[in-house]
């Protein structure tokens, strides 16, 4: 599948590559998180996850630049959050635009993608 020539949707500390020396990491997602981009997003999230070591305490996922999300995107994000927890990091979701937040709620992912640091 070919996708729109959007920029790399994942920014943040990707210059560092596989090793991260700081305790907190920041992950910024951009553009639409939809099924058409699922493979691409998955690959990039896996790379991000590789950068998470035991030293990481908090992983902030910035959703403020996400333009759209569908059920597939929600699922991917939810599993990413789970995987972060499993690696001992505390995921924090920074708020998404209102439309996206509403969509997440509509799709029933309100609890899985709780936008507060921890319940």
């Amino acid at each position: 599948m070919t996708f729109c020539n959007k920029q790399n949707p994942l920014k943040g500390q990707n210059k560092v590559g596989k090793k991260v020396f700081v305790n907190n990491i920041n992950i910024t997602l951009e553009g639409p998180l939809i099924v058409e981009r699922a493979q691409e997003l998955h690959q990039l999230l896996v790379e991000r996850l590789d950068g998470v070591t035991e030293k990481c305490q908090q992983a902030t996922i910035d959703l403020s630049r996400v333009s759209d999300i569908d059920a597939c995107g929600c699922q991917l994000l939810a599993l990413f959050v789970e995987s972060l927890k499993r690696r001992g990091a505390t995921p924090v979701l920074a708020p998404a635009p209102v439309g996206v937040t509403e969509r997440i709620n509509t799709l029933g992912f309100r609890d899985l993608l709780a936008l507060q640091p921890e319940r």
């Binding site: 099924v35 996850l49 995987s83 499993r86 992912f109 609890d111």
Partner: peptide, 22 residues
């Protein structure tokens, strides 16, 4: 009211991102 739940929690790298596990 609508709530989604993941039926399985595979490790992220093992997930086929287009496969629905919700």
């Amino acid at each position: 009211a609508c709530s989604a739940r993941l039926m399985e929690l595979p490790d992220l790298p093992e997930l086929d991102p287009e496969r629905c596990i919700t």
